[in-house]
Design a binder for these strands. Structure first.
Ligand SMILES: [Mn+2]
Ligand SMILES: [Mn+2]
Ligand SMILES: [Zn+2]
Ligand SMILES: [Zn+2]
Lengths: 148, 148
DNA sequence: ATTGTTAATGGAAGTCATTTTCAATAAGGA
DNA sequence: TCCTTATTGAAAATGACTTCCATTAACAAT
């Protein structure tokens, strides 16, 4: 209760995980970064404030945080996953702009009408193909301002 | 001109590539399969009718066919690319239903309105984020009839 | 049809992101 | 404090794909 216990600490313990030093350092980095980071990115940043970390632990912790619902994992399509801290437990729906040159990812708010159309399509597929859609993903591949 | 020269033969030669035996066998397999195949899938099928193929050649030929515009390459998000013969040179826009269990991919026709909405979003991003969208991709991850 | 040039082949070895293994360590409940 | 066992980090393994390189085969020019 004395400020140092962030909301996600309770969540992690609640999922049965231990709150270890490497985990806290990784969370610290993730929490104070705003972009979508690769495991390697996280490793490099954590290494600066806690040189003992192993890359293995970074991967494991990242997966653990995804499993706890604290972090989102994004497949950028370039063979390297990206991770990002959620601001809220229930992330609002959004899409991604992915730069084919530098790999940067921009979150874009979901347009209401587009969102509705996707939902309608999803309902249709469950009927037409007996395919249970779980999670629709819309990505716009292209080139960001500095790469185009 | 005697039937045995399929349309894509001219296209391959036209792009400056040689028409070799392994390439023809790979094309034969691709042309007579209807799903979205992984390089490994193609390798196994080709190996049955032409045991001398190397996996390397399968990868190279697949890329060559993509470069020639004869085959489409799809990133299923599971680390294994899928390839599919185009029926027509200009593929009509469509989306994918991807099974998270078995990896199968179902092509779904693009709904006109949804398609238009995506296009509108794309135009907006170029203005708002100075991000030049090249290729929007909509995927519906979930479970197919036999996996759910 | 024969030849010569050079693209294409296939096996082995290399990448690169991620995972597995395993002995040593450290959470945290008792 | 002690004990159990989850967690750690280094090293080795994995899996999809690529690169190397010596050999082979397309095919354009004789
Ligand atoms: Mn996002
Ligand atoms: Mn398709
Ligand atoms: Zn960029
Ligand atoms: Zn399935």
């Amino acid at each position: 209760m004395r400020g140092h216990g962030r909301w996600f600490h309770g969540r992690i313990r609640g999922c049965g995980y231990r709150l270890t030093l490497p985990r806290m350092k990784i969370i610290e980095v993730l929490n104070s970064s705003n972009g979508h980071l690769s495991a390697e990115d996280v490793f490099v940043k954590v290494h600066r404030i806690y040189p003992a970390v192993g890359l293995t632990t970074v991967y494991r912790t990242l997966e653990m945080l995804v499993a706890s619902g604290i972090v989102v994992k994004i497949d950028a399509g370039d063979g390297k996953a990206r991770y990002k801290f959620k601001k809220t437990l229930e992330e609002e729906p959004h899409f991604h702009l992915i730069c084919k040159k530098c790999g940067n990812i921009i979150d874009v708010k979901a347009d209401k009408e587009l969102e509705k159309n996707i939902h309608r399509a999803k309902e249709e597929y469950i009927k037409r193909y007996r395919f249970k859609v779980d999670n629709p993903q819309l990505r716009f591949y292209g080139y960001c301002e500095s790469c185009k």
